[in-house]
């Protein structure tokens, strides 16, 4: 159903928590950008053995900060680095392929990166309810255009233009974990002449 009303919260929205070490056979940590802060806190509160069977995949992301050196210095048994969350996916998928049950997965970064990481884990057969997540950085959304199906990255305005078909879209409070994106629906279909102003929103 189409409506221009904004609801304060909604049931399909991913909720993020705070990473905290739990008892597990092994640990896989995936971080993007400012998520490096969450990794530092996680390691600081973990037992000494935590790092012995832990993997960290860190993507610097598009922000100005580069925490690569600080992340490497934490002393994870295995450490992979990438430029962006998207670029980290092949290594993440390879790591997921080798995982055994009992590996706790920790994901952190901005909203777009978290969308990609959660989707990769689900595609590997890991139920999303067993994942730990913590949000850091931008709340810019990944948005799927419901009309042309194209995905627009880093959406910060309401409404927003589809990068593929150019329609002006209302970014709905409706999220698909399978697609890893919020839903965008044409905002002025009833009257294309009515072009609402864009506001910075996310």
């Amino acid at each position: 159903m189409m409506s221009t009303t904004q609801y304060a919260s909604f049931k399909s929205r991913p909720l993020y928590g705070t990473l905290s070490p739990v008892s597990a056979t092994a640990h896989l940590v995936v971080a993007e950008g400012e998520g490096s802060e969450a990794v530092k806190t996680l390691v600081a509160s973990a037992s000494a053995e935590f790092l012995d069977n832990a993997t960290l995949i860190y993507a610097k992301g598009s922000g100005p900060e580069d925490a690569t050196d600080a992340m490497q210095a934490l002393g994870f048994k295995r450490f992979h680095t990438s430029a962006t969350a998207t670029a980290s996916l092949p290594r993440l998928n390879a790591a997921l392929d080798r995982l055994r049950m009992g590996t706790q997965i920790y994901l952190t970064g901005n909203e777009s990166a978290l969308s990609l990481f959660v989707k990769a884990c689900a595609d590997a057969g890991q139920d999303y309810q067993g994942l730990q997540t913590e949000h850091h950085g931008s709340l810019a959304r990944r948005m799927q255009c419901v009309h042309c199906k194209g995905i627009t990255e880093n959406v910060t305005t309401q409404p927003a233009e589809c990068a593929h078909c150019g329609l002006l879209l209302l970014v709905r409070d409706h999220y698909s974990r399978r697609i890893g994106a919020f839903q965008g629906v044409n905002i002025n279909a009833e009257d294309p002449a009515d072009v609402p102003a864009k506001e910075e929103m996310f």
Partner: peptide, 11 residues
């Protein structure tokens, strides 16, 4: 055993 090894409940 499953829980202490870190198996998620959904599995």
């Amino acid at each position: 055993s499953a829980r202490s090894l870190g198996w998620p409940e959904a599995h």
